[in-house]
Amino acid sequence: MTDRRMIVGIRGSGIAATTCAYLLKAAGLRVATKVVHRPPVPTIMLSDAALALLRDIFQRPDLFADSPRIKRRVVAWGGGAPVVVPHGAALASEDQVQAVLAKDKPAPEDGPVDFTIHAAPPMPEGETHVFGDRRAVAAKVGLRDPSCSEEGRVEAVASGWLFLVPAGAGEGWLLGVGGSLDDLLADSRLIAPVVDAVAAASTPFLAAPRLHLPLCGEDWLACGTAALGFDPICGDGTAQSVREAILAAAVVTGIAEGQDATALLTHYQSMLIAVMRRHLLLCAQFYTTGGTGDWWRAQQDALLEGHRWCTGLLAKMPEPGFLLEGTRLVPRQQAA
C-alpha cells in the first residue's frame, strides 16, 4: 500500500480511537470512523504523565487545567499503617474527555476502507487471554471527610482491595476488587470510615490484565483496551491507551508511505506483548505484598504464569526493528 491517501477505518469511540483519528488525519490519511457505543467510564484519573501526552499530541497546553485534581494518595497495603505519597492527576468523566478531544473527529463514513484499527471488540480473529480471575464493582459514595476531595485512597484487605477517588461535590467513586463492596468494607480501616453509600454497586466487570492475540492481521490491528487491558491497580490505563494510539498511528502511517507492512505489524505486536509482560510483573509485586490469603496467592500465581508465557512469546519474535521518533517509526539502522 503506497497510496498516501489510503482510507483508514477506526472502530471505537474511546481515547485510543480519538487519538488515532487525530494523528492519522494530521499525517494526511483519510479516516472513516465507526462509533461503537459502550457505557462510559464515570471517572477517569488523568495522571500527569497521561495529561502531558494528551496536551502534546493535541497541542493543547491548557487541557484540563481547570479540572479537579488529586494531590496525594493514601495507601494501606499488606496490613501496614497508611502511607501518604504525592500523586498528581486530573479528574474528569469519560464524556468530558471525549467532548474536549473529539472536536475535530472525522464524521462517520460508509464504504470500503484499506485498513482498520479496531479500538473496540470484536476482533476479526483470535482470542483474549486473561491473567487471573478478578472481578470489580464500582459505586457512587458520599465522602464524610473533606480531605478526601484531593486524595485517592487505596487499601488491601483480606480478600481483595478498595480504591476511592473523589468525584466532586462531596462524592466519590469506590472500586472494589475481589468481592462485594459490603464484604470488602467490613475489613476496611482506611476507607470504610470516610464513605457512605449513595447508589447501588455496578454489575461486576473484569479487572484482571488481558491481551488479545493476534494483535494484528494483514489489513487490521487492535488498539486501546481492545488490544490489552491493565489491572486498575497500576493506575496507568489511560496513558497506555494513548501510547498505543501513537504507535498504532505510526504503524499505519508507515504502511501508507510504503514501508514494510509485515515488519511494522510484527513490531507492533512484539511491543504490546512486551508492555503486557512488564505490566504483569509490576502487578505481581503488588499482589505479592497485598495479602497472604488464598485469593492473593492465586492472583500472584496467575500473574507470574502470564509473565512467563509472554516471555516465551517474545523469545520467538525478532528484535524490534523500529524506533519511535515523535509520532513516526523509523528503521533502527536509519535512526542510528
Rank of each mutant, 00 (worst) to 15 (best):
Q96L: 12
Q96A: 15
L54E: 05
L53C: 12
K103N: 06
L46Q: 01
I117H: 07
V141Y: 01
E127M: 09
A92E: 00
S47R: 02
V154R: 13
L46R: 00
A90T: 06
V85N: 11
W77E: 10
G78V: 05
K34F: 03
L54M: 07
A90R: 04
R144N: 15
A136K: 05
I70F: 06
G111T: 12
L162K: 03
L164D: 00
F163N: 02
I117W: 09
L101C: 04
R144V: 14
F115G: 02
E150N: 10
G142T: 11
P121L: 05
G168R: 02
A49C: 04
V157C: 11
L54P: 09
A136F: 02
Q59F: 01
V130D: 07
P106S: 08
T33I: 15
V137S: 10
V97K: 01
A102R: 09
D56K: 07
G78T: 03
E155I: 14
D110A: 13
H87Y: 15
R72P: 10
H129I: 14
D66A: 14
S147V: 14
S93W: 00
P106Q: 08
Q98P: 10
V84E: 14
A158E: 15
T33Y: 00
D133S: 08
D110G: 15
E127S: 14
E151K: 11
R55Q: 11
A119H: 09
G142Q: 08
C148S: 15
P146D: 06
G142R: 09
S159L: 12
K105T: 14
V157P: 02
G80W: 03
D145G: 13
A167K: 02
A136D: 06
G126H: 10
H118L: 11
E127A: 14
L51I: 02
T128L: 10
G132L: 05
H129G: 03
F163P: 01
H87V: 12
P166I: 07
F64T: 03
E94M: 06
L46W: 00
F58P: 10
A99G: 13
V97F: 01
V141R: 06
D56F: 01
P42T: 04
R60S: 13
V113Q: 12
P39H: 11
R134N: 04
A50E: 01
A158L: 11
A99S: 13
G111V: 09
K105G: 10
P39Y: 05
H87W: 15
T116M: 08
P39S: 14
L63H: 05
H37T: 15
T43C: 06
E94V: 05
P61T: 08
A102C: 11
T128E: 13
A50Q: 01
R144D: 15
A119N: 07
T43F: 02
A167I: 02
A136N: 07
R135Y: 05
L91K: 08
E155H: 05
E150Y: 04
